[in-house]
Design a protein around this nucleic acid. Structure first.
Lengths: 190, 190
DNA sequence: ATTATTAATGTACGATGCGTTTCGAAATGT
DNA sequence: ACATTTCGAAACGCATCGTACATTAATAAT
């Protein structure tokens, strides 16, 4: 979604759009983000290169849209069991980071911040930030008053995100069974 | 250091070697890893491209060697105050990750694991692994017996590395004063 | 001194991918 | 029919890659 639909003229091809996004997903899973080229996507989708550039300014924009369904994290629930909410937040994170397509795209969004700051920005604003706000709220509810200052809450969120990132995306450790429980007992020591 | 010195023939130019590695550091700080090109390094060093390819197979190899002094972490001390040793380990990590050149190169080594697995491998084996082994030993000494199983120690190391990585390299948070203390109290709750 | 050996330079090459442009054809509303 | 917009095919100039070649330079062995 880049433009509004004009009233006249040939309408945008829904078929081509789907073919492009599907080809992007396929090439991402096959080759990874860095090795993905627009030319290969165009060839696989049976589409002209110009058509891709017509609707997406950058590779990052294109990839984020193609993986939208996989990388959206959702908001942390607000039940009357705040610790369960925090646990749900951790679960959402681990679950999302473990999806093959999401792991590739999230990693790329963070890693290419240097050369494509727009991609990192969009990823943060659209996917990380909403989750983070709701997770912070859950954390405040779950912590005792003397531990719920903003800086401590942000630190604990960094512990969660950083540890999950390290385990699932850097070390590529598929076994996440002990991870959630251990994170909970580190955040809420007995 | 790629080869032994042959006994005969023109010796390798020490001047060119230093000029190349210096240019790499300069371009890294100016442009970042992804935008660094071999051609630009050759031009800035006043050296032929072929000379660079003669001694370094890949960009990753070249960059790791150019930044060697900045990215080497050192081993965790072994005093009779094991908690202080763990604190020292955290300090080493934060300190290294905060150096401008190291932050660029470490980030690149992790981020390009997809397209340049050799760089990630070298980085892990040569710089991360030794620190990690000595940090694990310190952790075992510092933890009570009932918490010092291998999987728990590895998890706590991932918490440290992940959190520091998140704070310093992903979020680029320069303020690390509270970080070390908070990490300690998360690992050793009262 | 001559020869063998290795390094470094300059230059050029074919590939690949980039992002853009141009042109003609196709598909819609007015 | 006409205006408008999209699409596909092809080509463009550009940057960078990694390699190759011939030439010159510096050193050790003979």
């Amino acid at each position: 979604m880049t433009n509004d639909r004009p009233k006249r003229g040939r309408p945008r091809s829904h078929t081509s759009r789907e073919a492009i996004l599907g080809a992007v997903r396929h090439r991402l899973l096959a080759d990874g983000y860095l090795r993905l080229t627009i030319e290969a996507v165009a060839a696989e989708a049976g589409v002209s290169k110009a058509t891709i550039y017509r609707w997406w300014k950058t590779k990052g924009e294109l990839v984020l849209e193609a993986a939208e369904g996989d990388i959206s994290i959702g908001l942390v629930p607000e039940t009357n069991d705040p610790r369960a909410d925090v646990e749900a937040a951790i679960h959402q994170l681990v679950d999302t980071f473990s999806r093959p397509l999401a792991s590739i795209v999230i990693f790329a969004a963070i890693a290419t911040g240097e050369s494509d700051p727009v991609m990192a920005q969009i990823f943060r604003d659209r996917y990380v930030y909403p989750w983070r706000v709701s997770a912070a709220a859950a954390m405040v509810r779950a912590l005792p008053e003397d531990r719920s200052e903003a800086s401590e809450v942000q630190f604990l969120l960094d512990v969660i995100v950083g540890t999950v990132f390290q385990r699932t995306l850097v070390l590529r450790e598929p076994n996440t069974v002990g991870l959630k429980g251990r994170l909970m007992s580190v955040i809420f020591p007995i």
